[in-house]
Design a protein around this nucleic acid. Sequence first.
RNA 1: GCCCCCGUAGCUCAGCUGGACAGAGCGACAGACUUCUAAUCUGUUGGUCGCAGGUUCGAGUCCUGCCGGGGGCGCCA
Length: 575
Amino acid sequence: MSSPPQVLAERFRVALGNAFGPELADVDPVIRPSQFADFQANVALPLAKRLGSKPRDVAARLVESLGLSDITQPPEISGPGFINLTLRPEWLADQVRTLARDPRLGVPTEPSQVVPIDYSAPNVAKEMHVGHLRTTVVGDALARTLEHLGHRVVRQNHVGDWGTPFGMLVEHLLDVGEHSEEAELLVTSPNDFYQAGRAKFDGDEEFAARARRRVVALQAHEPETMRVWRELLELSKSYFHSIYTLLDVTLTDADLAGESSYNDELAQICDELEAAGIATVSEGALCVFLDGFTGREGKPVPLIIRKSDGGYGYGTTDLATIRHRVRDLRADRVLYVIGAPQSLHLQMVWATARKAGWLDDDVEVVHVQIGNVLGADGKILRTRSGGPIKLRSLLEEGVDKAGQVLAQSRPELSPQDREAIALHVGIGAIKYADLSVSHDSEYTFDFERMLSLTGNTGPYLQYAAARIRSILRKAGSPVGDADVVLTEEAERLLARTLLGFGDVVTQVGVTLEPHRLCGYLFELAQAFTTFYESCPVLKADDDSTRASRLVLCSVTLDVLVVGLGLLGITAPEQM
RNA sequence: GCCCCCGUAGCUCAGCUGGACAGAGCGACAGACUUCUAAUCUGUUGGUCGCAGGUUCGAGUCCUGCCGGGGGCGCCA
């Protein structure tokens, strides 16, 4: 089904053609939300110049040609030439009824694209921290949203599973014993494992020497070393699993596309680039120099693809990665949901890939820049002692705090129920806080704010859904396909808001900005709450009003649940 | 030095790709519970949109230059 702005735009297209000729039919009617009506069309203003007449006259001619009487009240021209459009309640009601029957709730199915999304990317044998939280949560929301729009999303979890530290880690794992309690730390508290290895490396010459030899063995793919390395990965996978499960993130083992998976291609990448004259040796390293990339003192910035010691860095891996996504996955659009500081690096990788012919112009690559998460002091979030905060403890704290609030406000619920709700509320609050501000801006982490039941928070939206569920439970009979009648202003506003869902989801697919969906859902929850306050549902004056309002409740719940679902947030049955 | 991001109400943030007087939430102040979950609501308060030019009928939004904050800029990813 089409959204109101879409329907209006189509009518304007016809009117523009009739009034000013077919060549102007496709001018954007510039339909926008209005503070004086439901929508306003601003097209008369830019058109006036083109036609050489006054904006108000253009608007008047347009209104004459406009066949809208079935949809809107008579359009009004105001100000310099705005056309104000107020939807007829009957038409709105009809649209809501159609929405109620639409399993997609107004969300279109777009022509399917293949969209690899690079997100999360934790490191093997390291604890995830708040930095990973944001890319994981935003990336997952984008994956869910694009999938819902009909695209084929290929999740790519580019985990850090290769490099010199792994010599030390393998050696340490062998030292402590593969099935020891120490080894189990990789699953429960990876940083402790890493730091124990690190401490030994720094303090024990003999171990350090062994670790360095192990790096060589690893790079030579020596079988026993590789076996232990794989064991390291397995343990880390369990750790990732536990976090992803707790976070309710869709990533699975099948999505792992770690750095090591490109090992076999790195030499060839270098050879090919060197043969093509794209890469040249400088100071012993094989580098790509690109026009337009200059650093200090105007010196060209290199993308180093082979270090002077013969090793490969992440630049080479990233080239193999983009090639794989385009050539093997046949991507139409590639998303990198990673930290903002990597911007320059990505630009260089892409430019190199384009030069090498691995990245066609018709493939869109986007860096969804993730801003830092800050503490109350405005600095990157850390523990009081200055160390990075473990993601797991952060999540557990959120769930814990949500549980405390519930214990106070809903003492009548069983501890089991409260625990289940606290999980959804705590995790939902943290995820929503991450999603509701634009992904590229830094944001301040504040439990109190994100767990608040008022304001633009996860719990507020969940609460709205829980109240609707409570009504529907008490309604007894299922919500039928009743006529919708909009008499109260609160009903009108709720109806109009509901009809905007599809457009917002579409927009998120284009701009890759989940915070727009958050803003919409907040608006919807507010519209519902206002309706809830002023329009009794179960105690409505008559049966038809009751039935109509039940439809409104039901559709609102559907949109909230689906919308939150696209964000990766669950709406609990009760709160 | 060059490049990227940011600067909007006391605080945290929006601002729908250029449209009418700049919006929310929190905070503060004043109200609303025999009512479907009062953890929810209503109202009031509050801003030279960092500064100065420019483009435009119209600029928080686009361009240029400053000021201020963050980040990046050759062998860590």
